[in-house]
Nucleic acid binder design. Structure first.
Length: 290
DNA sequence: TAGATTTGACCCCG
DNA sequence: CGGGGTCAAATCTA
């Protein structure tokens, strides 16, 4: 497999926590701006344009929320070693090989009792977001279930972090379609923060790793969700002028370009992307008059 | 061939 | 007891 950069090489040189706090602050400002932007957008008289713009704002909010959550949990990791988030009700697929069941035949599988539904005692970090692009939140998710929900027109889809096994990342999300609009709206419920984010993306802009990639993935998969590959985002933008995607603006340089050719203080790719988002947001907010 | 998805059974909680 | 969440074998797909 392609070489992954070891974590040790990537650690920020100076004061990571200061940088992180600064980014968190910026993201929070960004969230406020997104909200005021949303109010402005709602005044757009043309339905089509308004919906598209609202979708963009919604995606920005999603991006900011997930970015914030990443950074905040990262900060917790740096500040103390208690990884309670990771242990939150995660007995993790430890069902010792249960009974065998043919797809068409019902065979009772032995199951161990375990805590379910995290509502037992402790409070799980839960966020709800409405978006048209539930997949675009920069993380790699693996679907593990789908369920018809009472009084709901659409089934609820269950995803867990694609690294839940390897890194015991407890993050999960439920996605439920809300309506039949052209780009339908989805309600995304995020449960638990990612704890796998301390790892870094591969040089993903060379090719889409997609599924048949390395079996021993050590990095975030930013393929579909993919903020991380700014080059890929650029390509995407050029090809289809993504409106509903979360990458509404494109940085003029990529992470690799920036840091391979300069001695700027090194941000992690995640932090780099957040900075790009904030800049994009601010640029749009102040300059998008047309 | 390995990773991702599908899907019905299983399990817990209200 | 029913609804919601999860498991895991079967199946799909790249």
């Amino acid at each position: 497999m392609a070489m992954r950069r070891p974590k040790s090489e990537m650690s920020p040189p100076a004061s990571p926590s200061d940088q992180r706090d600064a980014v968190i602050e910026e993201l929070q400002k960004g969230a406020q701006l997104a909200e005021s932007l949303r109010q402005q957008v709602e005044l757009i008289p043309e339905l089509g344009r308004r919906d598209a713009a609202l979708a963009n704002v919604s995606n920005i909010s999603t991006a900011l929320a997930s970015s914030l959550s990443v950074l905040q949990s990262e900060r917790e990791q740096y500040s103390c070693s208690s990884s309670d988030a990771a242990t939150a009700h995660h007995a993790a697929g430890a069902f010792g090989g249960g009974g065998v069941r043919a797809r068409n035949g019902a065979v009772a599988r032995p199951r161990k009792t375990k805590h379910r539904r995290g509502t037992h005692g402790e409070q799980l970090p839960i966020k709800e977001i409405n978006t048209e692009t539930p997949e675009n939140d920069r993380f790699h998710w693996r679907k593990y279930g789908e369920k018809k929900i009472l009084n709901a027109d659409f089934p609820r889809l269950y995803y867990r972090c694609g690294y839940s096994d390897e890194h015991k990342c407890p993050a999960k999300k439920y996605v439920q379609q809300q309506n039949k609009n052209d780009p339908p709206m989805f309600m995304v419920t995020l449960i638990n923060d990612h704890t796998c984010h301390t790892l870094f993306p591969a040089e993903a802009d060379q090719q889409p790793p997609s599924s048949s990639g390395s079996p021993n993935l050590q990095v975030l998969d930013f393929t579909k969700a993919s903020l991380s590959s700014a080059a890929a985002v650029t390509r995407m933008k050029e090809e289809e002028d993504v409106v509903a995607g979360m990458y509404v603006t494109v940085p003029s340089y990529t992470y690799d370009e920036l840091y391979s050719s300069s001695s700027l203080p090194l941000l992690s790719p995640t932090e780099f992307e957040m900075e790009m988002e904030i800049k994009s947001l601010l640029r749009r907010h102040s300059g998008d008059g047309s």
